Computed example of a mutant assay.
Amino acid sequence: MPTPDSPLLLPVVDEDGAPFWEYAAAGELRVQSCAAPGCGELRFPPRPCCPHCQSFDSEWRAMSGRGRIWSYVLPHPPLLPAYAEQAPYNAVVVELSDAPHIRLVGNVVAGPDARLDSVDPGRLRIGAAVRAVFCRVTPDVTMVRWLLER
């Protein structure tokens, strides 16, 4: 929801997902994984219990930050004024190269601090290679965004 620090939508951080945002603030893309012996399954979104073995033991595994556009949309009409000012922009679903069953939502941008409309929508393609970058949108929130690989 928008805040005084940012007119953009911000994540609601819960106890299970807090480490994801802390790592993002440090410029790292990490995904929760099961820490039970013999399991190690990655899971996203974060949750307290492994859906594979039901263990409550978890750790955060570093990802390469590389992926492919699995899906994307160009929202019309934007719902909030801050987004209307940046239209047309994209919202993408990225499949991680390290964990193809893990998909993250974000935006493809021209640079870490670039506007959401900084990439021509005509350049987006399903399967296009991307890599994660990090944009501090408020003093407390760093978002994962994506750059097109050349």
Rank of each mutant, 00 (worst) to 15 (best):
M1Q: 15
P2E: 15
T3Q: 09
P7L: 02
L8N: 12
V13Q: 03
E15Q: 14
D16Q: 10
G17N: 14
F20W: 10
W21R: 10
A26I: 02
G27F: 03
R30C: 08
R30L: 07
P37I: 06
G38W: 01
G38Q: 02
E41G: 09
L42G: 05
P46D: 02
R47V: 01
P48V: 06
P51G: 06
H52K: 14
H52F: 11
C53V: 05
F56L: 08
D57T: 08
S58A: 14
S58R: 13
R61V: 04
R66S: 12
L74F: 09
L74S: 13
P78Y: 01
L80Q: 15
A82K: 03
A84I: 01
A87F: 00
P88I: 02
P88L: 10
A91L: 11
V92I: 02
E95G: 15
L96E: 03
P100H: 11
L104F: 04
L104V: 07
L104D: 01
V105T: 13
N107D: 05
V108C: 06
V109Q: 01
A110P: 03
G111T: 01
P112N: 13
D113Y: 06
L116W: 05
S118Q: 03
I126G: 12
A128S: 11
F134A: 10
C135L: 09
V137P: 04
M143D: 04
W146E: 04
R150I: 05
